[in-house]
Amino acid sequence: MSPIAALVLKDLAIELRRKETVVSMAMFGLLAMVIFAFALQSASLATGGDPLNNAAAELWVALTFAGVLGLNRSLAIDLDNDALQGLLLAPVGRGALYVGKVLSNFLFMLLAAAVVLALFVVFNNLLLDARLLWVAVLTVLGTFGFAGVGTILAMIAANTRMREVMLPILQIVLTMPMIIAAVGATARVLDDGDPGTLYVELVAAFDIIFLVVSYLVFEYVVEE
């Protein structure tokens, strides 16, 4: 079995035993979406705007907050009982360690995102059509970029005091361009079905660039 598959299966086994990460992410993402719906829809009811204008924003705020929470959980599991130390001592390349961690973080975020997305469709009375397919594609792309940067940032935050604070700060600041593009594309899809090629390309470019750069510099973060 390849080391990457072993790493992902290990995280999956932990998650299947505890069922903590995905549930708390989905719950938190759902609550973030609901609270932003209350806040933004109250505003648009007061000013007479179309509530669907804010739907894209609600979705991405929910996915961002749920993602940060999930990364914090996954990091906490790795730091408990010095499990991370054990992983670093294992005869696994740093690159494989990074890819394995990205894949398991991506998998958990995707599961939570599926729950959030399902309720997003219901709450906004969206039709099950091509627009929804685009929203799903954007969610997958955005979540992947989020997991890619987030995995290395979680390891960076692990070295700081106040890691619960530093991870969201770094994560939100560094994923900002991806969020801008993802919200823009989602809003346009919901509006007229066309996400805008530039926006989608930008999200994809963000994913690729940060995955490659993070892969290259990961060894400096975990070295002894």
Binding site: M176, P177, M178, I180, A181, G184, L198, L202, A205, F206
Partner: peptide
């Protein structure tokens, strides 16, 4: 540069 592009389109 990615921020620059994102915001430029925005």
């Amino acid at each position: 540069p990615i921020n620059y592009l994102a915001i430029r389109i925005w």
